[in-house]
Design a protein around this nucleic acid. Structure first.
Lengths: 227, 227
DNA sequence: TTGGTTTCTGACCATTCGGTCAGAATGTGT
DNA sequence: ACACATTCTGACCGAATGGTCAGAAACCAA
């Protein structure tokens, strides 16, 4: 189409068609390095030189593959949004609130765990005023939140949970889970660890699930029915 | 002492002694502008040029007052840590858990509300691996957290709250409150608002207090004793 | 081997970066 | 009026920035 920015895309007949193995490997390496650098220093603070060094390639090669700094950044954001959307499964009023919320917390926690750099990249983008993601926030994501909110409200009407504001509840879950990726340095510094183990993450997930569910008056199906 | 970096400090007989009014006004203006720019773009991404423009002064003047970019940044961090420490009041086992936690949530929420740029500056610093704050995190703040944690545990032993991990609880409160400053762009985009009103903040504070206290099995003194 | 395509990179460009400095401008006390 | 200290700023510096481009290097079918 009317692209013409990246020579690589002229070469590869169409975007996404896999050619060489070295190409794939280099792209993977560049994207991983860029995610680290952008996450750490933000869009402006990241330098192509640093990205190239971390990827073990000359700067020119990074530009050959990615076209421009902005293009590279946008591509990383889109990749992260795809990962995010992958766990935005639909729910229904008939579902069990406890199961849905626990799955929500757990999958969100795993996303932060599996892609900590991507999580921080996203955080840095929002922190800077979301110049590239405003459309996504005001559109797709907003609709998703409001759809869920309506279901939470219906659950509350049916007495399955307390009548709490569903949007604030979603933000609470997002912030609590995101925290362990974005503020990793703080968490490690205060707890005196080198890294969070799988067991730690499981423990935190259990803690968050218990506190938040109980805080909303949601009773787990297979749990004590009363305190 | 062995300073000699900022000419301004040689002029002012001692650090902190107030001289002219224009000096005070300019310093205030520079610090405010720098907080905005550093919060938005991180340390590396911020430029003295942008800070100077926002402060309405030539770049040279910023350096005359602040000595260096690094010095300016450190000074902002220290100012933010002072604000933070101001609400780290000590508590005792004899205190009422509900009152303490509510005051904790409320004061933390107000800090994020009153100093959103400072909050974001802090977040950006942590996001980047806390290169300037590691000492603070591993020392002062860690001690504070562990002191509080011990008291939470004693409350749990006395049956005043559930035996939840106190450190994860503190992180939960931090993340939930910090969220509304750091992810303001997301919150506004999704809720479709221009800004959060005082009433919004009060509503969120009430929501967080209710959910978290209930989630930890803490009963408010002047509230319904049972559901 | 040949010829053509794709992949790669060193050299280079204009711009911006943080920081220095000489000296102009502005007090300020006598 | 004078002398002196302080406050301010334009001009400038070397280094680093994102990006361009000519051409080397590697690959591949004929």
């Amino acid at each position: 189409m009317t692209e013409g920015s990246a020579p690589a895309e002229r070469g590869a007949r169409e975007q996404g068609e896999a050619n060489g193995v070295t190409r794939q490997r280099n792209e993977r390496e560049i994207l991983a390095a860029a995610e680290r650098v952008f996450a750490r220093h933000g869009y402006r603070g990241a330098s192509l030189q640093a990205i190239a060094e971390q990827a073990g390639l000359p700067k020119s090669n990074v530009l050959y593959y990615m076209g421009s700094k902005r293009g590279l950044y946008v591509r990383l954001l889109e990749r992260m949004m795809e990962r995010w959307n992958a766990l935005l499964d639909d729910i229904s009023v008939e579902d069990d609130p406890a199961e849905v919320l626990e799955a929500f917390i757990r999958s969100k926690m795993q996303l932060s765990r599996r892609h900590p750099e991507g999580s921080r990249l996203f955080a840095a983008e929002i922190l800077g005023g979301a110049p590239f993601l405003q459309e996504y926030l005001r559109g797709e994501l907003r609709d998703w939140v409001q759809a869920r909110a309506r279901i939470f409200e219906q659950w509350a009407e049916r007495g399955l949970m307390d009548p709490v504001d569903p949007v604030w509840l979603i933000f609470l879950i997002w912030s609590a889970t995101q925290h362990y990726a974005d503020f990793e340095a703080q968490v490690l510094g205060i707890t005196g660890r080198d890294a969070l183990s799988d067991a730690d993450v499981e423990e935190i997930t259990t803690f968050l699930t218990r506190v938040i569910l109980k805080g909303c008056g949601i009773r787990s199906r297979d749990a004590e029915p009363a305190a």
